[in-house]
Write a protein that binds this DNA or RNA. Structure first.
Lengths: 347, 347
DNA sequence: TTTTAGCACTCAAGGAAAAGGAGTGCTAAT
DNA sequence: ATTAGCACTCCTTTTCCTTGAGTGCTAAAA
């Protein structure tokens, strides 16, 4: 049997109506939607074919049709009209990203909330490095006799600092010696290598200074590891409760717990800029009845972030993909501004 | 009519049974619970009195009784036996706080998650300053010709840093001059005063340096303001869905949205170390059918945090208060360790 | 005066049966 | 190939009934 153009058109109507109403779609409604050019009986024949071809399903004999995952797949691949965001909405997206971006973490969680509120589904966001982070530069600033601030600059213009307590007094000379040591021997290398080198210099340094050194190194190791870890932030999980398919508290609870606890297994985009996973295409059990749309955005310094949306299989793919693309673009512009195209002179 | 001891005892049984089962409690069950010393008929008489006194309510004529807010109030004030945590549990609480405390934010969100999972209700956490934050010390570290790192140390041992981009080259001499200026004129004063002083020195400094100075000051102002703001973190909102009173998606949605959006109006503890708000005692509409238990913990440097739990009116007050107290104590010990009792020498 | 047994009464919850209705599949006509 | 017509299916909603836990009251017992 052929998948004629009319069949595709009917499929499109079914998908879009079901996305809107969450109710099975009947032949009469389809006929009306298509402008009365054909009768409902004709539609019925076509519908039977579409079921046989596997694009539609029938909850029960006397109900309308709903799209199967295969139907959604065809929809997003061929039938869906790519929405263009209005200028006003693009503007709003960028505004929502602009409020005080301060730290990366805060920016991301804000982005997550913004996405979620734009698309009315839960969203998740992460930034991750493709290469292992290394320290780029150290600094130790004396505060008083018993404490100093360690400043660590990592690749990707990320800076972190922390107060270190010292049991024993360390004088200025020793301090600048340590900074020198840190910058010559502990930059640009892996965490393992750092610990290795720490062992090597153990005997050549007076104990009070060594204690401080090892504090600084272990702080750096922690910070680097944390920066390299892919921390995923979720937002707007409660949006689920507005959807009829999650009015059942158990279903909602399952997915929401998954989103707030084991978010590690959320899909990542692999190749292209955007990835859509429909229902059973998800490997994770909790997502088998859900769909995920995830976009990636490149930011300088070998870092790549991701931003995704989770919803029911009948999610509004056209709207979500358009907005997600808008956000990814906005984030890239934002980071692009922070890291101008010309590369660092040094190094 | 008198509130006899027996009436109180009955009230206690009703509250505790209802907390356990979420079902109205009948006279027969109460009689059984009380060891058969009195008959169900006697209990029925007493129950009628308790209803008249306003401590109990009847969902409908032929149902058992449930506690009214007034009943819960009497329970938490007089009847509730203060639970003592087992050593094992105290240990677990402290362990849950000990994993890499890194930054304050991260610690708090971890504490929130931990509390929530201990008590099986949603939790919220915040740290806030009672006095306005001021800058304690500045540092500017050159990175290359076009950027430097600004390090800001605030009261409360909080340190923040950020990379600043410079349009124009600023040499080392100017940089150390700026650091000096910042530390002499912009420490220990309010944000407003800082902006004021920035204006005052505008003409005495060469433009490229002034640009950097104003960047640094505005960064400090942002950081201080953010540190002073009371940011509230919620965790475990999905716990709600396990409770029978929130199986209705609309109810759950209302409270969950409130918890994730407008958390500003969550109750704060005012005087004592712990505060309990039962049902209509809450002013916020979304909390009228819920109860809140909130504890505060003091941390050094005029800062005080709060940690709270939100649940149904039939929440397990005894369990929650005990665990909340455990967490508050754990947090105080944690911060107490970071800030030793002896005060700073300088300043 | 307090407690208890006994009993009629109430009312929500649960279930079966009936009514209603949206939608289908098939047939025969166009 | 399309369409009107119609019987049929089966979910949904409504209605009605039953069930049973629990009450309130009364009258007897302690």
């Amino acid at each position: 049997m052929e998948l004629t153009d009319r069949k595709k058109q009917i499929l499109k109507v079914v998908v879009e109506s079901y996305i809107r109403t969450a109710e099975p779609v009947g032949s009469k409604a389809i006929a009306a939607e298509m402008g009365g050019s054909v009768s409902s009986a004709t539609i019925r024949n076509e519908l039977a074919d579409l079921v046989e071809l596997g694009y539609l399903e029938q909850p029960h004999t006397s109900a309308g049709r709903i799209p199967s995952p295969k139907g959604y797949r065809l929809y997003v691949n061929e039938l869906m009209e790519r929405q263009r965001l209005s200028l006003a909405e693009t503007e709003k997206i960028n505004q929502s990203l602009h409020g005080k971006m301060e730290e990366l973490d805060r920016l991301l969680s804000q982005a997550g909330r913004a996405v979620s509120s734009f698309v009315n589904y839960p969203a998740y966001v992460a930034a991750a490095n493709r290469i292992t982070q290394t320290a780029r530069r150290f600094e130790l600033l004396p505060v008083d006799d018993h404490s100093c601030i360690a400043v660590l600059m990592m690749s990707g213009s990320r800076v972190k600092s922390q107060l270190l307590r010292m049991q024993l007094k360390v004088d200025m000379d020793q301090l600048s010696m340590l900074v020198n040591l840190l910058n010559t021997h502990f930059t640009g290398v892996s965490v393992d290598e750092m610990n290795q080198r720490l062992m090597n210099v153990a005997e050549q340094i007076p104990p009070p200074a060594f204690l401080l050194l090892s504090q600084a190194v272990s702080y750096a190791a922690d910070a680097l590891e944390e920066a390299g870890r892919r921390e995923i932030i979720t937002a707007g999980t409660n949006q689920l409760l507005k959807l009829p398919e999650f009015r059942d508290a158990d279903k909602a609870h399952e997915l929401m717990s998954f989103l707030s606890d084991s978010k590690d297994s959320l899909p990542l985009p692999d190749d292209g800029p955007m990835k859509i996973l429909i229902g059973p295409e998800n490997v994770t059990d909790a997502l088998r009845d859900a769909s995920v749309v995830v976009a990636s955005y490149d930011i300088g310094d070998d870092m790549r972030g991701l931003i995704g949306v989770v919803g029911p299989t009948r999610m509004d793919y056209a709207a979500v993909t358009a907005r997600l693309a808008g956000f990814a673009e906005g984030l890239m512009r934002l980071f692009g501004k922070e890291l101008p195209p010309k590369e660092e002179h040094k190094e």
